[in-house]
């Protein structure tokens, strides 16, 4: 059983509240900041401004990012299915970013970061159109397809 954040394209309006609220989790020294540039979920749009896609890690069965990491900083928890990055170990080589065909790994302050699924995800709470959901679900085909198809 894998926990992950699911995304429904139809509902998204590109408001970016998910990124804003996600970033609150990564605040340091007790100072809370809305800082979309460090978020683990990012919305991209096509040139036409007709498609909006929130990129958020699918917690893949066999993660390409993990395979690609030369220093074994990425691991998958067998119990929860969640793929996480050890920021201390990460050297910032960006191999994982190149490897992730879904564009769900991001560079922040010289290290790679990705969604590691919070207990009570703020992105889901903040999404007023309910395009995001916390699910126990291994069936990621639709979302994979979306990321591949859009290629944003």
């Amino acid at each position: 059983m894998g926990k992950r954040i699911s995304f429904e394209e139809e509902k998204c309006t590109n408001c970016n509240l998910c990124s804003m609220y996600c970033s609150l989790n990564f605040t340091r020294n007790g100072v809370y900041e809305y800082r979309p540039s460090i978020a683990r979920i990012r919305v991209s749009q096509n040139d036409d401004d007709t498609r909006y896609v929130a990129h958020v890690c699918l917690q893949c069965e066999s993660p390409a990012c993990m395979e690609a990491c030369p220093v074994d900083a990425i691991s998958k928890d067998q119990a929860t299915g969640i793929v996480s990055i050890d920021e201390e170990e990460c050297t910032g080589c960006e191999s994982c970013i190149d490897a992730c065909e879904f564009d769900c790994v991001f560079m922040v302050g010289g290290v790679a970061v990705k969604c590691e699924v919070c207990d009570d995800p703020l992105c889901v709470k903040a999404c007023a159109v309910k395009a995001l959901e916390l699910v126990d679900d291994d069936d990621v085909k639709d979302q994979e397809l979306l990321y591949r198809e859009v290629g944003l």
């Binding site: 100072v31 809370y32 900041e33 809305y34 800082r35 540039s37 460090i38 709470k125």
Partner: peptide, 16 residues
């Protein structure tokens, strides 16, 4: 790429 500091984000979550 900077952040906007706020005092009480939990209260702001009520916006949703």
């Amino acid at each position: 790429t900077k952040g906007v500091r706020v005092h009480d984000p939990e209260e702001l979550l009520r916006a949703t």
